[in-house]
């Protein structure tokens, strides 16, 4: 199936009779058949020819090839883009540990030094990532600022708020968090240990829904991609029907016939992967401007992360594989029809 150009005349000159090495090689070729090395080189050459032939054919129709890649790229970008946005939403929601913080309300008679001692004790406990003490005065100041009841609170005879220790767990597992909360509640000077899992559960449910949506969309778009690549390869097969029939008549195996189409599918996939990476990088960058402005209004310095290199490489590999599989399915379907007439 390769369209290797014939070597130049200078390359096609037969070895000189006086050259002993080629003579020896020629004798071995005639008597013992090709060596393993020669067969391996021929195999490599056959693959190289198929790859170059496929590239040449794609290059002959640059606009058609580009649009096929673009359609595939858009189909790839949708689930990948949604997945990247979900990752960013996870970051936006803060760390899971922060969302699952345990608040320890201390007894009113607990002094600041007892609170600091409690923090040291908690930090040494297993399953704790961080612990922070907020004294009664600090709690009151913060409440005055946030509630807008500053003047009213000043009228109170004494500070009604207890000291608080905020404990950030190492992992977010409902059972482990519950066990940690129970241990913390038993510590001295702790009046109440409160764990608010509702927010964690809601966020997890939303993200799970998002993941499912992305998965469903991915399945649908992968099927669409296989159809696009299959149809494209089918057209290539139709255009080369005579060539395929001749190849089969002179002893070409199915794998020989299939090879250039598989390379073509993989090349379409590679092109689509590169385009998709570009579309996603550009799209996220474009969105990021608006996101940064919005986040700034809430006093946050949050910004969208771009396409991580590992994700980009996975995208490329996946696209190449999809192109290859799509081409394989298309050729397998049509190979039987390609029997010489």
């Amino acid at each position: 199936m390769s369209a290797t150009r014939s070597p130049k005349v200078s390359e096609r000159v037969a070895p000189k009779v006086s050259d002993p090495a080629p003579q020896k090689k020629k004798k071995r070729d005639d008597d013992d058949g090709p060596s393993f090395g020669e067969l391996f080189n021929a195999w490599i050459e056959a693959h190289r020819s198929s790859l170059l032939d496929s590239l040449r054919r794609l290059g002959k129709q640059p606009i058609g090839s580009f649009f096929t890649c673009l359609v595939m790229a858009i189909a790839l970008s949708l689930p990948m883009g949604l997945s990247l946005l979900l990752s960013n939403v996870e970051r936006l929601g803060g760390s899971w540990q922060r969302a699952a913080q345990i608040s320890l309300y201390l007894q009113l008679d607990a002094s600041p030094s007892e609170g600091e001692g409690l923090v040291r004790q908690i930090k040494e406990m297993g399953g704790v990532a961080e612990a922070e003490y907020i004294s009664r005065d600090e709690a009151l100041n913060e409440f005055q600022k946030q509630s807008g009841l500053g003047e009213a609170l000043k009228e109170l005879p004494e500070n009604p708020l207890p000291g608080v220790v905020l404990v950030t767990p190492l992992e977010v597992d409902k059972a482990a968090l519950e066990a940690l909360r129970t241990r913390l509640a038993e510590l001295p000077k702790v009046q109440q240990a409160q764990l608010d899992l509702v927010w964690v559960e809601r966020l997890a449910a939303i993200l799970k829904l998002g993941d499912r949506f992305v998965f469903g969309l991915t399945v649908l778009l992968v099927a669409a991609l296989l159809l696009v690549i299959g149809n494209t390869i089918r057209l290539h097969i139709e255009n080369r029907r005579t060539e395929i029939e001749v190849i089969k008549l002179v002893g070409g195996t199915d794998s020989y016939v299939r090879r250039p189409f598989l390379y073509m599918g993989a090349l379409y996939g590679l092109g689509a992967g590169v385009l998709s990476w570009g579309v996603l990088a550009f799209g996220l960058d474009w969105l990021n401007e608006a996101v940064v402005r919005l986040a700034g209004l809430y006093g946050s310095n949050f910004a969208l992360a771009g396409v991580p290199v590992s994700d980009g490489l996975s995208l490329l590999l996946g696209a190449v594989l999809l192109g290859y599989i799509g081409a394989w399915i298309a050729v397998a379907r049509h190979l039987r029809e390609l029997a010489p007439r």
């Binding site: 014939s6 090709p34 067969l39 050459e45």
Partner: peptide, 18 residues
């Protein structure tokens, strides 16, 4: 390249094909 086709299918080396 037309004549070389059966030899390429056989997987012969470039030198042998020529």
């Amino acid at each position: 390249n037309n004549v070389a086709l059966p030899l390429q299918i056989l997987g012969l080396s470039k030198t042998e094909v020529v």
